[in-house]
Amino acid sequence: MKKAQPKKKAVRRPKAFKPIPVDAFENQQLSLFQDFLANTDNERATLSNAVDLWDSIPRYALSRKNQDEVRLPGGYLPIRKVAFHYRGIPLTAVVRPARIEVRDEAGNPTEETIEYYPSAREELIEHALRRLAAAPPAGFYDQPDRRSGLIFTLHRLRQELASQGHAMTYRDLAEGMDVLSLGAIDLETSDPADPLGVRHFARSTYFPKLIGVKRDDLEKNPEAKWYVEFHPFVTESIDKVYRIRYRR
């Protein structure tokens, strides 16, 4: 009898990236990127605006200096919980740090790793990307697949930051986006009524998807295209405001 051959283990292949539809860059709701809020006080009061909630979360509250003070041996940071109120509702932001490679002054990996919470630098990067998304045809809102974000270059992002008085190197930008795409955040509430539906929101990194250029090639390819998706709260907001404004 032939000896039974062991079954080959199935190879898990990465999920293919689904291209953004052309009309996702052209829809009316992209105008909502301009301020992410309603036009009038009355409209603002009647909308459940998740970006209003997103921007109310103390998600960048701890500076790099303070992070160094609480860092544990091995470069680790504890899961951070920050209590706050949004429209009188008690909430807790649960922030999980991003673990990234340590690099020397020349940009070479040292084979060590360290953890960071998103902080002031990452906040500047996020807001700069949101401003860029307001300028067609960079930003997109893909309603069927519930995703929003933009396609950009590091050179354009640097220009936007510099115009706001926040110059950064390519490596600073790349590390900041690593932190945003690896650091996770979710919300908890002690309110049994859960009026915001917090328990129905899925946990997510600050940037759920990031596609770009390897760090070693950053300065060689400043015009290379990058792709980023915004946090689901941002997409949820655009969807809700769009449905109210354009589907009367």
Rank of each mutant, 00 (worst) to 15 (best):
Asp52His: 09
Ser56Pro: 02
Arg59Phe: 02
Lys65Glu: 15
Ile125Arg: 02
Glu122Ser: 02
Glu101Thr: 07
Gly74Asn: 08
Val22Gly: 00
Pro73Ile: 12
Ser31Arg: 14
Glu101Gly: 04
Val102Lys: 14
Ala98Ile: 03
Lys81Gln: 15
Leu124Pro: 00
Val102Met: 10
Ser31Tyr: 07
Glu122Lys: 03
Pro21Glu: 02
Ala24Gln: 01
Gly74Pro: 06
Asp68Ser: 12
Asp52Ala: 09
Phe36Asn: 00
Ala16Gly: 03
Thr40Trp: 06
Glu112Val: 00
Gln34Trp: 05
Ser31Ile: 13
Gly75Met: 08
Ala16Asn: 02
Lys81Ala: 09
Ala45Met: 09
Pro90Tyr: 03
Ser56Arg: 08
Ala38Gly: 12
Leu72Asp: 05
Thr113Pro: 01
Ser56Gly: 15
Ser48Phe: 12
Pro58Lys: 02
Ile125Gly: 00
Arg99His: 01
Glu101Tyr: 05
Asp68Trp: 01
Leu72Ile: 10
Ala83Arg: 12
Gln67Phe: 11
Thr46Gln: 14
Gln34Arg: 15
Leu62Asp: 01
Leu91Pro: 03
Ala61Ile: 07
Pro14Tyr: 05
Phe25Thr: 06
Tyr116Gly: 00
Asp52Met: 07
Tyr60Arg: 03
Lys81Val: 08
Phe33Arg: 04
Glu123Gln: 14
Pro73His: 13
Pro78Phe: 11
Gln28Val: 12
Lys81Thr: 13
Phe25Lys: 08
Arg59Cys: 02
Gln67Gly: 07
Ile89Arg: 05
Ser56Thr: 07
His127Met: 10
Trp54Cys: 02
Asp41Tyr: 09
Tyr76Ile: 08
Tyr76Pro: 00
Arg99Pro: 00
Pro90Leu: 11
Glu115Ser: 09
Thr92Trp: 04
Tyr117Ser: 01
Ser119Tyr: 12
Ile57Arg: 03
Arg80His: 12
Phe25Gln: 03
Glu126Gln: 14
Ile20Ser: 01
Ala16Leu: 10
Lys65Leu: 11
Ser31Ala: 14
Asp35Ala: 06
Ile89His: 10
Pro21Trp: 08
Ser31Met: 12
Lys15Ile: 14
Asp55Asn: 14
Glu105Arg: 13
Ala83Cys: 04
Tyr86Phe: 15
Asn49Gly: 04
Ser119His: 13
Leu62Phe: 08
Gly88Asp: 07
Ala98Asn: 06
Val95Arg: 02
Gly107Lys: 05
Glu111Arg: 14
His127Tyr: 08
Ala50His: 06
Leu47Asn: 11
Ala120His: 11
Glu122Arg: 04
Leu91Glu: 03
Lys18Ser: 10
Tyr86Lys: 04
Glu112Ser: 10
Val102Pro: 03
Leu77Tyr: 05
Ser56Lys: 04
Val70Gln: 12
His85Ala: 10
Phe36Lys: 01
Glu69Thr: 09
Asn108Asp: 12
Gln29Ser: 15
Leu30His: 06
Ala24His: 01
Ile100Gln: 03
Pro14Asp: 07
Gln29Glu: 15
Ile89Trp: 06
Pro78Ile: 14
Leu47Ile: 13
Thr40Gly: 09
Asp35Trp: 07
Val95Gln: 05
Thr92Pro: 00
Ile20Cys: 00
Tyr117Arg: 02
Trp54Leu: 09
Tyr76Trp: 12
Ala45Glu: 14
Ile79Gly: 01
Tyr116Met: 06
Thr110Cys: 04
Lys81Arg: 15
Ala106Lys: 14
Pro14Asn: 05
Leu47His: 10
Arg71Gln: 13
Lys15Asp: 10
Leu53Asp: 05
Thr46Leu: 13
Gln34Ile: 05
Ile20Thr: 11
Glu111Thr: 05
Tyr117Pro: 02
Pro19Trp: 07
Pro118Asn: 03
Ile79Phe: 04
